[in-house]
Design a protein around this nucleic acid. Structure first.
Length: 659
DNA sequence: AAGCTCTGCTTTTTT
DNA sequence: AGCAGAGCTT
């Protein structure tokens, strides 16, 4: 074994396939499950399999490549292009949602769906709020709309009746379950009225027709020879129904890792991995066990973390690259210190010749990264934030888009509500009455006439719609017209208008890439783009700030994992629920195993603590408050904690003013 | 009666 | 940043 005295001694990543990967890529015996630990070359193996299949004469259009996120799909397409060139473009690659939606659009009659507007979570919550207000009125004790939406979504993704789910997994009983059911029923009714489809509807409708209609099944089954599925551990029962309905003669090639299942909160079911061979008779299981990404020290800590679990993950990653630097635990006073420490470390490295792009900052939640983001901006460190505030979710952008949405789909009641209430002296009540009437009108022309008559004090309310309609064929021009018309209103509404107004220019640039307004709206509903990402190219030299959930499948030479402290791992909201706590462990595991050369775990001593509604008590974080913490007894030989932290003691009273 | 403004409170993860 | 509620204005 090499002696490592410098930090870049470890071998670089392996470019070719090892025996296990090769065996998987060239497997020729029916359905197969590939158990692939973190960093074992999952993507390379999938790409190699596509190359192998096309080399043996399979039509690339008959290989379906399903991923979990858009990011993963893009990455896969990129790697595939490097490997097989232009043929990569003909391999259908996308997320489950994307794939299903494509067929709903292509064959609306077969799927019995007609035209549809996809709504994001925000709209879903708005609609749920209306339903809740209607059915239960004011009742502080009744679950909030966000919780109701979670129940609904979870039940649908696991393909079981809501009542059954509520009875089994929550504290709700009889009367309460009935009222929740009534709200959800009302939500569904409203959804249909507006021709809305939420994310779950896309999968649900596709799966339903696949299993109900012989014609749909035959069409889908004859379309593909090979179904390649990435991140199998995060698929849910609804997605399994889709895979199950499409296989035979098409062969499944599913890649996953039970230790990286971090979407159980959304219905992901590891039985899709554990019971694979029972569900798919005659299928095989292959394993990838050699880690090519990280140094052994990083894996030692990750392995230790899994070993502490009561669950048997049966996983011990060994590093092909050999030894390197030990992970470093850094404890700071508060989140400002934490952010500044990371910024100064980044700047030091950059001055030393390292590129920004080699650094990734991982966070448990977007909200927890606010100090870090502020510090990056303050220090002029170029970055993009994946999983952060989404451009199209900020209030002023939604205001503008509501105008486009009502023209695109005049039945879109949420957009109407948003658009109408922007105008002076038009509030919820006035708008609601107007909406009730205008949804009965036959076309947008009649709507414009009606609005002109109904709101004589606001003639521009109707004019604006009419004018945007004139340039409807050119999305960028529509955004331009809408911006001009809406600016006076929005200027008044937002006191930080100067900061916000620049987003409309970005929006216009985004729109230029799209053929129709409808397509523009839909693209960013399904694939939201964050404010810090707009206008930045994939190859720009940037630090990546990313949520752990979005980071699955990515890697970086140097990783900073922030907020590693009691109260976050496991998260306070999961304490007391064994399954949830275990998922938290896997989140930390996924985060750690992103690092190639160096891993920094930063945390703070003083933090605010958090109120946990479910337990109805306030949890103090930090110190020895007795709450579980995954790293509370990490063996000293696995990490370094002796790092000199350069804090000037005279500085501390002054830094406290920064709140 | 409806709309508006101010204040205090909370903030997991994603298609 | 968004939401709920109180209290004020039109």
């Amino acid at each position: 074994m090499d002696l490592n005295d410098g930090k870049r001694e470890a071998k670089p990543a392996l470019p070719r396939l090892n025996a296990q990967q090769k065996r998987a890529a060239e497997f020729d015996g029916g359905h197969v499950l590939v158990l692939a630990g973190a960093g074992t070359g999952k993507t390379s193996t999938i790409v190699a399999r596509v190359a192998h299949l096309t080399n043996t004469g399979i039509d690339p259009r008959r290989i379906l490549l399903l991923t979990f996120t858009r990011r993963a799909a893009r990455e896969m397409r990129h790697r595939l292009t490097l490997q097989i060139g232009q043929a990569a473009k003909t391999v259908p690659t996308g997320t489950f949602h994307n794939f299903c939606l494509q067929y709903l659009r292509r064959w609306p009659d077969l799927f019995e769906c007609g035209s549809l507007t996809i709504i994001d979570r925000d709209d879903q919550l708005q609609l749920m709020k209306l339903a809740r207000a209607d059915i239960v009125g004011k009742d502080a004790g009744f679950p909030k709309s966000a919780e109701l939406a979670n129940y609904y979504s979870y039940a649908r993704n696991t393909n079981r009746p809501v009542a059954e789910y509520l009875a089994e997994f929550t504290d709700h009983e009889g009367d309460s379950i009935e009222r929740i059911g009534a709200v959800l029923k009302d939500y569904t009714k409203r959804k249909h009225e507006c021709r809305y489809f939420d994310y779950d509807d896309i999968l649900h409708l596709f799966a339903r027709q696949l299993h109900r209609s012989r014609l749909v099944r035959e069409k889908m089954q004859s379309r593909y020879d090979h179904l390649l599925v990435d991140e199998m551990q995060d698929t849910n029962p609804l997605q399994w129904l889709i895979l199950d309905g499409m296989r035979d003669p098409a062969k499944l090639f599913c890649v996953g890792d039970d230790a990286q299942c971090i979407y159980a909160f959304r219905g992901a079911d590891f039985r899709n991995v554990h019971s694979f061979t029972d569900r798919v008779p005659g299928s095989s299981v292959l394993k990838l066990e050699e880690n090519f990404r990280s140094t052994q020290e990083i894996l030692d800590l990750s392995n230790w973390l899994l070993d502490q679990s009561p669950l048997e993950y049966d996983k011990h990653l060994t590093a092909w690259r050999g030894a390197g630097e030990k992970p470093v635990l850094v404890e700071l006073d508060d989140d400002f210190e934490e952010a500044d420490w990371i910024s100064s470390d980044l700047m030091q490295r950059h001055e030393g010749g390292d590129e920004w792009r080699d650094h990734m900052i991982l966070t448990r939640s977007a909200w927890a990264a606010r100090s870090v983001e502020a510090s990056l901006i303050e220090n002029d460190i170029p970055y993009r934030f994946i999983g952060g505030t989404q451009l199209l979710q900020s209030a002023h952008v939604k205001d503008l888009l509501s105008l486009l949405r009502v023209i695109d789909n005049p039945a879109d009641q949420l957009a109407w509500m948003r658009y109408l209430t922007l105008w002076p002296r038009v509030g919820e009540k006035t708008a609601a009455t107007a909406i009730n009437h205008l949804v009965t009108l036959p076309n947008i022309k009649a709507v414009v006439e009606f609005l002109a008559g109904r709101f004589p004090a606001n003639p521009r309310l109707a004019e604006t719609i009419e004018e945007c309609r004139q340039s409807w064929a050119r999305p960028a021009a529509v955004i331009g017209a809408a911006t001009d018309k809406m600016t006076p209103l929005l200027e008044k509404k937002y006191d930080d208008w100067d900061r916000r107004s620049k987003d409309f220019k970005l929006l216009q640039r985004l729109a230029e890439k799209h053929e129709t307004v409808g397509e523009f709206l839909e693209t960013y509903t399904l694939d939201p783009i964050t404010e810090s990402e707009v206008g930045k190219e994939d190859n720009d030299d940037l630090v990546t700030l990313i949520t752990v959930h979005s980071a699955k499948g990515t890697e970086a030479p140097v990783c900073y994992l922030i907020g590693v402290q009691p109260g976050n791992y496991p998260h306070v909201r999961s304490i007391g629920d064994d399954d949830k706590e275990e998922e938290e462990r896997r989140v930390l595991y996924v985060a750690m195993t992103r690092a190639q050369n160096e891993l920094f775990l930063t945390g703070t001593i003083r933090s605010r603590g958090a109120f946990v509604p479910h337990h109805n008590r306030f949890y103090q974080t930090g110190g020895s408050s007795g709450q579980p913490y995954f790293l509370s007894d990490v063996p000293p030989h696995l990490v370094r904690t002796d790092l000199e932290i350069d804090t000037d003691p005279f500085d501390s009273p002054i830094t406290s003013f920064r709140d």
